[in-house]
Computed example of a mutant assay.
Amino acid sequence: MAYDRYVAICHPLHYPNLMNLKVCSRLSVTSWCFGLLESFLFLGFIFHHHFCQSNVINHLFCDLKSLIKLSCSKTWTIELAIYISAILFGIFPLVFILSSYILILSAILRIRAKAGRQKAFSTCSSHLTVVILFFGIILTMYMRPKSVYSTEQDKVLAVLYTSCIPTLNPFIYSLRNKEVKEALKRKRGDTLTFQG
């Protein structure tokens, strides 16, 4: 999305050439491959650990940090891998996304027409909001030092990033859509007419 917004605002005349089906497919496949790589990496780590304590995970789902707490093996390698993974798959993408938005912001500020600037800001603000919420929660969850780790905090953060953010996505993206706003206004008008 960040690359799409960057191309649409900074290179609008080249958009059809720069954001074609091939580029979209490559971006999607790369994202999926990195997700699978990370999953298999941690799956391999978990298979090499011994679990001699309770088999009840004190979490909403089988989260990696909660699973590590049950291990009776030394966990420093997997904890180090979590930090490295958070840097590679959390901080680097966040920096890439934020740097693209810095370029977008500089392009928006050069737009002279107020309506054009507002449209560009509204197009980007929804995605940037979701990105900051998602990465902020994930990085807070996995980059916290062990001394301030709290299972209860992790449960709240897990609900936020697995349920709340995906639930907010349709509202954040579609309520900016002019047709959706008009349909909601019509629906509200129909309801008021029916009740009156």
Results as ranks from 00 to 15, higher is better:
residue 1 M to T: 06
residue 2 A to T: 01
residue 5 R to S: 10
residue 6 Y to H: 13
residue 7 V to W: 02
residue 7 V to M: 06
residue 7 V to Q: 05
residue 10 C to L: 00
residue 10 C to S: 05
residue 11 H to W: 04
residue 12 P to L: 05
residue 12 P to D: 05
residue 13 L to V: 01
residue 14 H to V: 03
residue 14 H to A: 12
residue 17 N to M: 08
residue 17 N to S: 10
residue 18 L to N: 00
residue 21 L to Y: 08
residue 25 S to E: 08
residue 32 W to N: 13
residue 34 F to N: 12
residue 37 L to F: 08
residue 42 F to Y: 06
residue 42 F to Q: 04
residue 44 G to D: 04
residue 44 G to R: 01
residue 45 F to A: 00
residue 46 I to H: 01
residue 46 I to E: 02
residue 49 H to S: 03
residue 49 H to Q: 10
residue 51 F to L: 08
residue 54 S to I: 05
residue 54 S to T: 15
residue 62 C to D: 06
residue 63 D to P: 00
residue 64 L to H: 01
residue 65 K to R: 13
residue 65 K to E: 10
residue 68 I to E: 12
residue 70 L to Q: 13
residue 72 C to H: 06
residue 73 S to E: 06
residue 77 T to W: 10
residue 78 I to S: 06
residue 79 E to Q: 12
residue 81 A to K: 00
residue 81 A to D: 02
residue 82 I to V: 13
residue 83 Y to R: 15
residue 86 A to Y: 04
residue 86 A to M: 09
residue 87 I to C: 11
residue 87 I to Y: 10
residue 87 I to E: 04
residue 87 I to Q: 04
residue 90 G to M: 07
residue 96 F to T: 12
residue 98 L to W: 02
residue 101 Y to G: 03
residue 102 I to G: 05
residue 105 L to S: 11
residue 105 L to N: 07
residue 108 I to W: 01
residue 108 I to C: 01
residue 108 I to V: 11
residue 114 K to F: 11
residue 117 R to M: 10
residue 120 A to H: 03
residue 122 S to G: 03
residue 123 T to K: 04
residue 124 C to G: 12
residue 124 C to W: 01
residue 126 S to R: 14
residue 126 S to K: 11
residue 127 H to Q: 10
residue 130 V to I: 15
residue 130 V to Y: 00
residue 133 L to S: 02
residue 134 F to R: 10
residue 135 F to P: 05
residue 138 I to G: 02
residue 140 T to C: 12
residue 143 M to W: 09
residue 145 P to K: 13
residue 146 K to L: 14
residue 152 E to H: 14
residue 153 Q to Y: 14
residue 155 K to C: 13
residue 159 V to F: 15
residue 161 Y to D: 15
residue 163 S to H: 07
residue 163 S to K: 07
residue 165 I to L: 11
residue 168 L to F: 10
residue 169 N to Y: 14
residue 174 S to I: 02
residue 175 L to H: 02
residue 181 K to G: 02
residue 183 A to N: 06
residue 184 L to G: 01
residue 184 L to S: 00
residue 188 R to V: 10
residue 189 G to W: 04
residue 191 T to V: 14
residue 192 L to D: 09
residue 192 L to H: 11
residue 194 F to P: 05
residue 195 Q to M: 15
residue 196 G to D: 09
